[in-house]
Design a protein around this nucleic acid. Structure first.
Ligand SMILES: [Mn+2]
Ligand SMILES: [Mn+2]
Ligand SMILES: [Zn+2]
Ligand SMILES: [Zn+2]
Lengths: 143, 143
DNA sequence: CTATTGTTGATAGCGATTTTCAATATCATA
DNA sequence: TATGATATTGAAAATCGCTATCAACAATAG
């Protein structure tokens, strides 16, 4: 499972002279097995079930390492709480968010992406990145 | 000055059986006179200069009322701190945000808006609203 | 094995925002 | 205008998500 990601994380730790702790391995495994947009707290609770001794701070610390190593991306939606998604092997995308059930749907629209670049340039802006979220009601929730 | 907005706020308070306090009038005036994307703290400091007795909680409470009455919109950008902008008489817009100087530029692109609607519908979504922020370096900051 | 150095969990701290509460102001009505 | 019901206020405590601190502990090189 996820040998490539494990290697990336190990290599990142090695380069930074960081150690391969049990906690880091455990959290990496659980992170890789859950491909959702989790909050730190949600991840904490899941990790706790399997490894009750793990502390809150370690979750945050490891999430930071995962982001730095390129495996994870931190996102902030409307409520301001950080959420974390898989980054490795995932291309850039934006999100549709259901205001009823809270689910996230990933989308890409190359035409919109092109127009965003153009819009920035029209205003003398040198674009670096963007964020786009569409809020609405998903098919299931509309009944 | 801003007679219309004053009326909207007064009417809103009346409908909700709320009272027309001095503080509310003062904060409304200052809010209306500053057309920026202020944080609660920034507004607090400006209000304090003129009315030193006003409390922090009253700023937040009044900002909430301004939002509910339709005069104000709360926005959250990358740092998670809420910012407040004028809503009355302002059409929907998105933001370009300079990562050097932190300034906000308001933009609308009807073609992007159209494609956003279309994108949502393609995924079976009933769109309600969206948020789009383009981060980059503004003309001035690029030298 | 041992020393060095990084890691951990608990907990304190922080910034933004909300809640609590007793004192006070607003406002409809007498 | 005086009264009283009800809403509002400022100060301070509480909360929330997250980061910093620190002493005990674990990983790794030699
Ligand atoms: Mn995603
Ligand atoms: Mn704006
Ligand atoms: Zn839904
Ligand atoms: Zn700039």
């Amino acid at each position: 499972m996820a040998r490539e990601e494990e290697k990336i994380f190990e290599d990142y730790l090695a380069i930074k002279n960081l150690k391969q702790s049990e906690q880091r391995k455990e959290i990496l495994q659980i992170f890789l097995n859950i491909d959702k947009h989790l909050t730190a707290n949600e991840l904490y609770r899941i990790v706790q079930k399997k490894y009750p001794k793990v502390g809150y701070a370690t979750i945050y610390r490891t999430l930071r390492l995962l982001c730095e190593s390129g495996l994870c991306r931190e996102l902030k939606f409307e409520d301001g709480t950080a959420r974390y998604e898989h980054l490795y092997g995932h291309q850039h995308h934006d999100h549709l968010i259901c205001t009823k059930c809270g689910r996230f749907f990933e989308v890409v629209d190359s035409e919109i992406e092109r127009l965003q670049e153009k819009l920035a340039k029209q205003h003398g802006f040198y674009p670096e990145r963007h964020r786009m979220e569409l809020y609405g009601v998903c098919r299931k929730c509309k009944k």
